[in-house]
Simulated scan of single mutants.
Amino acid sequence: MSRATFVVLCVVSLSGCALLSPVKTDSKQYTLNDIPLDLPSERTHSATLLVLVPEAGPLYATTQMAYTTQAYQIAYFSQNEWAETPSQMIEPLIVETLRHTHYFSDVLSSPDFDRHTFTLRSEILEIKQDFTSEPAMLQLTMRFNLSREATNQVIATKELSVREPMLERNPYAGVVAANEAVAKLLRELVIFVVDNAN
């Protein structure tokens, strides 16, 4: 084999390896961790509440961060994502918020299925950055069902929705707005739960 042929084969071989190597991307991960402050402290009742992990459709049951630039269209950022799915991040925030009210003797979360008086089920209907408006908005919509465990009867259902303005038109501004939206929605959730858990 001639030396020139050998060199060509080596170059082709090495370039093939480079093509098969994984592409490194600097993906940024973000969290939802804000809860409402200065919640009213309620008189403690003997009732207990079980909070289930929020359900979510395929669009939002992912760590991908959704946005829209035109009606009827959803896309995902390529280098910005949630550290966990929105459901996984929002469930502990619901639990912590409801514990801070002191209304229930205990607020449980899955997989802790001890005896409880009420169950709170929820569903994430929307959590996306909306760039079709000026300013851009973070849209968060959830549906909640409160049921009495003894009878498995739904006591109340409520859909809560928050549109929070984004200070800039970029993914990070959307994350900041998402945290503010979650805190506002949780404050409304407290009113819904306390008003109906009696």
Rank of each mutant, 00 (worst) to 15 (best):
P40S: 04
S41Y: 01
R43Q: 13
T44I: 02
H45M: 04
H45E: 06
T48P: 01
L50W: 01
P54N: 08
P54G: 06
A56E: 06
T62M: 03
Q64G: 12
M65F: 13
M65H: 05
T68Q: 11
T69I: 11
T69L: 04
Q70P: 01
Q70N: 09
A71N: 07
A71R: 11
Q73P: 01
I74W: 10
A75L: 11
A75C: 01
Q79L: 09
N80L: 01
E81G: 05
A83G: 03
A83N: 09
T85C: 03
P86V: 10
Q88Y: 02
M89W: 05
M89Y: 09
I90P: 03
I90L: 07
I90V: 14
E91Q: 15
E91C: 07
P92V: 10
L93P: 07
L93C: 03
V95S: 03
V95H: 02
E96P: 00
E96W: 00
T97W: 03
L98N: 07
R99V: 12
H102V: 05
H102G: 00
Y103S: 04
Y103L: 12
Y103E: 04
Y103W: 10
F104Q: 05
S105W: 00
D106V: 00
V107K: 06
V107C: 04
L108W: 02
S110E: 14
D112G: 02
D112P: 02
F113D: 04
R115K: 13
H116D: 11
T117I: 07
T117L: 05
F118D: 10
F118Y: 15
T119A: 14
T119M: 13
L120C: 08
L120A: 07
R121E: 15
S122P: 12
S122K: 11
E123G: 10
E123F: 11
I124W: 13
I124T: 13
L125G: 15
L125V: 15
E126L: 12
I127P: 02
I127Y: 05
K128P: 02
Q129C: 07
T132Q: 14
T132A: 03
S133M: 11
E134F: 06
P135F: 06
Q139L: 10
M142V: 09
M142W: 04
R143S: 12
F144H: 09
R148M: 03
E149T: 14
T151R: 10
I155C: 01
K158T: 08
R163G: 04
E164R: 12
P165D: 08
M166S: 08
M166I: 08
M166N: 09
Y172F: 14
A173S: 15
G174V: 07
G174R: 11
A177M: 10
A178H: 05
